[in-house]
Design a protein around this nucleic acid. Structure first.
Length: 423
RNA sequence: GGAGAGAUGGCAGAGCGGUUGAUUGCACCUGUCUUGAAAACAGGCUUGGGUAAAACCAACGGGGGUUCGAAUCCCUCUCUCUCCGCCA
């Protein structure tokens, strides 16, 4: 949610910049500005009326005390009349505010000036490529065959227990999951991120705070009995820790990380996109989150980008970094880097991380603020990134490292797996 | 799940129908004093709307009601705590 005063003061700018996201903001912005000005008009009227009523009430009190009953009663009647008007105004104010909030939430975040124009993933800008793509034998197998061959992930069993997209990890497959999670968490904490273990069910307020609600409701699993949502990412609970908080400037930057399972309904996905580990309903992920001073957020984004790159390097996976074009960016982001690893048997790039600067878009929704000494509260900037999401890492790792003897585990991971080969 | 108690500013904790946006303590900030610090003293210290800045308005868990007037009374929802039950 963009700050209202920003929209008010930079109307043209907002419209022009949102065009980069292929979002025609013209009529929405107009409507927001009109509704806001209506709101203020009503508010001013109501304030004046309330001021009058307050004065009156005081006078009535004084008159009663000094025993002037009849005069007091006269004023009382006047006060009752005021009240009817103020009731109407209050109702008008409430409905105008509701309307304003409803449309304000429809406006996406403004993309940073560095965001390339474009409509589809094909327009994303490759900003960095690293690592060697292995030359595999002609009969190299995609990961969903390898997992069966070595009996480490059972997709059908998951279907039996739950449904498609809920795989069961077994033996070295399960150990590999645990190894990756620990590897990622250890790296994150070594880099100064405080580890958080959070709930994986969140309430509506949290879902709204990070932008999943109301618009992306269909992407989350909803526990209707208690009106809670299964988190699609640890970003939701971790960022919401700071909802409605006014931090001290010296508390910044806040660096948190956390491992959670993530749940996504992925309604509408189909075909080879969802084959094997490519797209799951439940998966494991370590997320890094930062809350920073607005002056520092782009610097922080680069730092996080470098951090994620270093992880992939340690895992010896070929990867590239994309700067997302306006059309491919998420609703809430101002600038996003996607990380993709090259899965050699599928011969395609798989997204394994997305690192974004949300500027004040989330913090405005969640009221995450900070204060300089003696200053006014102001919105902080929030950032987050996957570091990393497991399934596609596993897919790439299995495919790229397959040999006749088995699947080789990258050196950095061996202390965590306790084995150097899946065979 | 049953019974009871409670929700007030960063924290603790008053207030229970009329200058109470809120006593007080702690924390914090700014001054005075000091070579510096501590102590002491003086002042400041919720948030949002509104304004050039004020004035002004709103908010004492959320929503509704009674009243000329509510943090204070009533209804309702949510949450927390205590006891009992159940239980990893």
């Amino acid at each position: 949610m963009l700050p209202l005063h920003y929209i008010r003061d930079n109307k043209e700018e907002v419209i022009i910049r949102l065009a980069v996201k292929n979002f025609d903001a013209q009529s929405l912005v107009e409507k927001i500005i009109i509704t806001d000005s209506d709101r203020r008009k009503i508010q001013t009227e109501l304030d004046t009326l309330n001021a009058e009523a307050n004065t009156l009430a005081k006078q009535v009190g004084d008159l009663f005390k000094s025993g002037k009953q009849s005069e007091a009663n006269d004023l009382k009647n006047k006060s009752v009349a005021l009240k009817e008007t103020s009731k109407k105004l209050e109702a008008a104010l409430a409905s105008t505010e509701e309307e304003l909030n409803k449309i304000l939430v429809l406006l996406p975040n403004i993309p940073s000036k560095k965001v390339p124009k474009g409509k589809t993933p094909a327009d994303n800008e490759v900003v960095h490529t690293d690592g060697e793509v292995p030359k595999l034998a002609a009969d190299a197998k995609p990961h969903w065959e390898l997992t069966t061959q070595y009996d480490i992930i059972d997709f059908e069993l998951g279907v039996k227990l739950t449904g498609a997209g809920f795989p069961v990890y077994k033996g070295k497959g399960a150990k590999l999951q645990r190894a990756l999670i620990n590897f990622f968490l250890d790296n994150a904490t070594a880099a100064g991120f405080l580890e958080i273990e959070s709930p994986i069910l969140v309430n509506e307020a949290s879902g709204f705070g990070t932008g999943q609600l109301p618009d992306k409701e269909g992407q989350m699993y909803h526990v209707t009995g208690d009106n809670l949502y299964l988190i699609p990412t640890a970003e939701v609970p971790i960022t919401n820790i700071y909802r409605d908080i006014i931090l001290k400037a010296e508390d910044l930057p806040i660096k948190n990380c956390g491992y959670t399972p993530c749940f996504r309904r992925e309604a509408g996905s189909y075909g080879k996109e969802v084959r094997g580990l490519n797209r799951l309903h439940q998966f494991d992920k370590v997320e890094i989150v930062q809350i920073v001073h607005p002056d520092k957020s782009y610097e922080t984004l680069e730092e996080m980008r470098n951090y994620v790159a270093a992880l992939l390097k340690q895992l010896e996976l070929p990867y590239r970094i994309l700067k997302l074009c306006g059309g491919d960016m998420s609703f809430a982001s101002a600038l996003t880097y996607d990380f993709e690893t090259y899965s050699a048997a599928q011969q395609k790039w798989l997204e394994v991380s997305s690192v974004s600067n949300f500027e004040s878009f989330q913090s405005n929704r969640s009221k995450i603020r900070f204060r300089e000494t003696n200053g006014k509260p102001q919105l902080a900037h929030t950032l987050n990134g996957s570091a990393l999401a497991l399934p596609r890492i596993v897919a790439t790792l299995l495919e790229n490292n397959q040999t006749e003897k088995g699947i080789k585990i990258p050196k950095a991971l061996i202390p965590y797996t306790g084995f150097d080969m899946i065979s």
